[in-house]
Amino acid sequence: MEQFYVFLQQMVNGISLGSIYALIALGYTMVYGIIKLINFAHGDIYMVGAFVGYFAINYLHVGFFGSLFIAMAACVLLGILIERIAYKPLRNATRIAALITAIGVSFLLEYTTVFALGAQSRAFPEVLGNIRFGFFGNKVFITNKELLIYGVTLALMVLLQFIVKKTKTGKAMRAVAFDRDAAMLMGVNIDNTISATFALGSALAGAAGVLVGIYYSAISPLMGMNPGLKAFVAAVLGGIGSIPGAALGGVLMGVIETMVIAYGQSTFRDAVAFAILIIILIIKPSGIFGSNAREKV
């Protein structure tokens, strides 16, 4: 029984980590769905979101939800800016050119931040306090921060699903993802639609940045590298281009990673993550939800 409680506690840890991966993976998958670009700078937008949240709390004293909003807004601007400056001129270039540009943008964001703020970690301000809720006679705990991560992630996913399915912009995004030329002929403004996709994806990454800052209480300019890669694997696992796929893939990645540390060798954690990527690419390249899905955003 004791073992079972430890397992439940590890699930709590895994789902928290997975929620963060899911939020980042959504941005990867949306951008890929619409312009077939793996936006490697996405993990660094998440980092910028964390830093914007840090400055918003420290200097504007806005509290958690204020900083979340400001970080998301800043990332929306950053996402649109990156798309307009770096990716739009390459829209008809080869995909490898766009991919290399994305890697370039990633380094640019990382090292501009290192240059401006220094490479050292910073302590993220404590704005929520620390409350623990015990279950099963205090054998399993969930903290207020973990509940917040679950809540914010779920709310943002519902909101995203609403925007994509029910709004005009969402309809345009689906149309462009389906067939860009036909959508253009029907009068859809391609540029604005692609910008909107980057904006949405970046907003989610910004939110993930602030949540991580709150949860782990430390941020650094290179914090986006590793989660960015893991989220990319999560997006592939779920089926790149599929929104529910990215959400499920993210949570799965978090749980798998946690269970490898908990019941296997912690040393193999990253190896297992990338072994999963290789296995998916061999057995089911389209991912869990990617099978012949006609509708991708």
Binding site: E2, V6, Q9, Q10, N13, G14, S16, L17, V212, Y216, A218, L222, M223, M225, N226, E257, T258, I261, A262, S266, T267, D270
Partner: peptide, 20 residues
């Protein structure tokens, strides 16, 4: 004994294992 790597920030899993 549980190991981690240079850029880890999440030690919850390792610590849960240790605390058990």
């Amino acid at each position: 004994q549980v190991s981690f790597t240079n850029d880890d920030v999440n030690f919850n899993t390792a610590l849960t294992k240790i605390i058990a």
